[in-house]
Design a protein around this nucleic acid. Sequence first.
DNA 1: GAGTGGTCTAGACCACGGT
DNA 2: CCGTGGTCTAGACCACTCC
Lengths: 248, 248
Amino acid sequence: MELALQDSETHIGFKPLYAQVKDQLIRRLVDGVWQPGMNIPSEQELARQLNVSQGTVRKALDAMTAENLLVRRQGRGTFVAEPEDSRILFQFFKLTTDNKTQDSAFPESRLLCWSQEPSTADEAQALSIDKGAPVWRIERVRQVDGKSVITETISIAAKTLPGFDALKEIPNNVYQLYSSNWGITIAKADEKLKAVLSNERDCATLGCETGVPMLLIRRIARDLEGNPVELRCSRCLTDDMHYAVNLP
Amino acid sequence: MELALQDSETHIGFKPLYAQVKDQLIRRLVDGVWQPGMNIPSEQELARQLNVSQGTVRKALDAMTAENLLVRRQGRGTFVAEPEDSRILFQFFKLTTDNKTQDSAFPESRLLCWSQEPSTADEAQALSIDKGAPVWRIERVRQVDGKSVITETISIAAKTLPGFDALKEIPNNVYQLYSSNWGITIAKADEKLKAVLSNERDCATLGCETGVPMLLIRRIARDLEGNPVELRCSRCLTDDMHYAVNLP
DNA sequence: GAGTGGTCTAGACCACGGT
DNA sequence: CCGTGGTCTAGACCACTCC
């Protein structure tokens, strides 16, 4: 295999070789050539395939490892990251209990309802689809220490998940579901946080009072190529919890 | 100069050479040998000084650049990052307006009061000092689009800032103040977010109503060695703003 | 032109994991 | 034992910046 190198006469749009290698390898993930959990070829083998040095391949692999796309294990090889890896799991779950003496487990969720509906303007904008285009909407509740404290509304374009209605149940970790059933890898996400007051739905679902402060988390999850896949709005009672951020 | 290499007979506690180099270079920052804005020696020069190869120095410098401690400029050299670098400025300010058509400027702050007080138990725990030990407490208000929306309470151990009371005024960017007057570099921080209700102080300060939801941000800022320097509690009206997080 | 960081290569030795 | 990734080295060429 040969990498398409740019015209050496011009340096505009120049991309370093290791970046081109990385793009090639990400393409193998996007196309499903490399599946989660797979042992990918060794650095030496990839270097031969791509006609570059081992050091250049290493730089690409290191970058992908830093983005949680790969897992490297000395003596064994390099593997495609799996959504159930605990590290990945907590990559997208920043809410923890204030009292961290107990290491907080990943909270189980209880399904409230799920149905296909026409998308709202907000969903359409977030998911880059037409307004009114069908979306699956999933409502869940999460418990921490036996108390229901988080409501979660997931919206995802129906065309993204063909055959979704044939599912018998929805697992706790939907990112693993996207991966195993539709080959979609959630690679990154952005979240916007606000403080809001609880509404009647929150009260009915969580058993709290109205007018209680809640943390609203609006997440857009994206695939390997940066396309929006899922909109998730979580509303959380933060009396005994907080959202933790590390800078950098 | 010679690096202290570990006993080659044992591999427990082994630290790669580039990590030892990084530690050495960070020490130069901690000790003030390298001041913010300074042009540090070239890779070749550092390699000679430390008796390692240029590649090893590069790996250490790249890591420090990734942590925003250094800034590299091709053809010019490597420089110690300055607190007023716009990149660094926004590293610690995640609040932005919902309407991002206008690129949000760093909001100016208005000083309410500052005084030295005995530390509360909370401050003492956050700053790793004895309860009741004196702290400077600074209260400010930040405006966005002409509206007061953020109250900010900064607590910092008095012993950290000798001669603080001789200051005539407190600048908007206190991290730059810490750096220029006391040689303290804020290198990282962790934040915990909660939703709360506005209290009477908030109302008096921001002119909002009581019982309005607010985003509470509790930040502990740390120096190069990870020691807590400053506790900052911000309370923000998030009607027209949000806290933005990117994962990873 | 001299010096800097940015990229790319080639080869060495090591620790680790499995055979 | 072999193959893997992890580290370290040495040297080449390039683009950028300043003189």
